[in-house]
Simulated scan of single mutants.
Amino acid sequence: MEYPLNSIQTQHRSATLDSFFKKQLELIFNKGDIRINGNRPWDIRVHDNRVFRRVITQGSLGLGESYMEKWWECDDLEEFFFRLLSAKCDEKVITPEWLIGRLIGKTCNLQHPSRAFQVGEHHYNTGNDLFACMLDKQMIYSCGYWKEADSLDEAQEKKLRLVFDKLCLREGMKVLDIGCGWGGAARFAAEQYNVSVTAITVSSEQAEVARERCAGLPVTVALCDYRTLQGMFDRIYSIGMFEHVGYKNYRTYFEVISRCLEPDGLSLLHTIGGNTTTTNGDPWSCKYIFPNSMLPSASQITQNYEGLFKLEDWHVFSHDYSLTLKAWHENVEKHWQTLQSRYTETFHRMWQYYLLSFSGAFRARSIELWQILLSKQGVRGEYRVPR
């Protein structure tokens, strides 16, 4: 069979470009000791040569989407990301998507009140069956505390006790839970510490389950944005919600906390954080997992509570989130045969990529886990923060 000359030339140019992009990606991966079509667990096996151009030109978005589409495989995705991010390979690729995201983040308030419920609808409403299989018995969707813990259930209970002991909860207190998830923390506080809790979320699915799980307890669950909060509370905590606030709204968040916290009150912020100041989130994560999300830097947090609060404690236990994410991944895989009737294989690969890439990022300390304890007036006398 004879091919037109221009068709042959096109194929040749395409193959040449694929070779060029492959060499570029090899140079980047070499920094993390990752090989293309290598035989080690963290090496990648390529099934479609278009992946090279896609990753070089689209960065994290191209890497994640091509994995979802089965263009490449990796036996140990968590180790792959640990090596990739430890060597800062991600910083070698600057794409139009990243630049556009940075521009949009600087010019627009992606977390405006009119957009507050998008992350709830997109992510937290994914399916209660999925989260029930993935999470611990209390359905806590945040980092566990693995000090002297042998299971996910133990790690999450230790985390809750850590939070509430830091807050010095006492019987009869009025407590505010911002971003309450499926109500696990609010229920635990009410049952174990005899406090009344007002809990809010932007997910209708979470609110429904939280009300069921907290029935009969002094817990009120509301579907609302934190900016609409009224009332006064002795203690306020937020566990895994601040990542959705956005840098344009950090000051507003702390002003709301200050407005609603009693003068002698304490507030605890449990959040993922970034090592550098940014104005936008990761393109793949924002598109597929957490719309409009971004990670605060330490300076963004301190600058925005300045004049409103005094810092009592800043606790870092980032590696614990890697352990938590791996436990979640193991649970999903264990239950996948039950879940696959509702969720597609593309979704399965997306979820694997999400959990294991985040786990690798925490292990590499590319991202951090912080618990920050704040007071309005400063704790009087000797106060040793629990660990």
Rank of each mutant, 00 (worst) to 15 (best):
P296R: 03
P296G: 04
P296N: 04
A298W: 13
A298T: 11
A298S: 13
S299V: 07
S299T: 11
Q300F: 03
Q300W: 03
I301R: 00
I301G: 01
I301Q: 01
T302I: 08
T302R: 07
T302P: 02
T302Q: 04
Q303V: 00
Q303K: 11
Q303E: 14
Q303G: 05
N304E: 03
N304K: 00
N304V: 00
N304C: 03
Y305A: 04
Y305N: 07
Y305Q: 05
E306H: 14
E306G: 09
E306R: 14
G307F: 04
L308R: 07
L308H: 05
L308M: 10
L308E: 06
L308W: 04
F309N: 02
F309P: 00
F309T: 04
F309K: 01
F309L: 05
K310P: 00
K310V: 11
K310Q: 14
L311K: 04
L311Q: 03
L311A: 02
L311F: 04
E312N: 03
E312R: 02
E312L: 02
E312I: 01
E312P: 04
E312Q: 08
D313F: 08
W314Q: 11
W314L: 15
W314I: 12
W314V: 13
H315C: 11
H315L: 10
V316H: 13
V316P: 03
V316D: 15
V316C: 12
F317W: 10
F317V: 02
F317L: 11
F317M: 08
F317Q: 01
S318M: 06
S318T: 15
S318L: 08
S318E: 03
H319M: 12
H319S: 14
H319N: 13
H319W: 09
H319K: 15
H319V: 13
H319E: 14
D320S: 09
D320M: 06
D320G: 06
Y321V: 12
Y321W: 11
Y321D: 11
S322V: 00
S322T: 05
S322I: 00
S322K: 09
L323S: 08
T324E: 08
T324Y: 10
T324G: 07
T324Q: 08
T324L: 06
L325E: 00
K326R: 15
A327Q: 05
A327Y: 02
A327R: 07
A327I: 02
A327K: 08
W328R: 09
W328C: 10
W328S: 10
H329K: 13
E330M: 09
N331M: 06
N331S: 12
N331A: 08
V332Y: 02
V332T: 10
V332Q: 03
E333F: 00
E333P: 00
E333N: 11
E333Q: 14
K334T: 14
H335Y: 14
H335K: 15
W336M: 07
W336N: 02
W336E: 02
W336V: 05
W336F: 06
Q337N: 15
Q337Y: 11
Q337P: 00
Q337H: 14
T338K: 14
L339R: 06
Q340D: 06
Q340C: 15
Q340R: 15
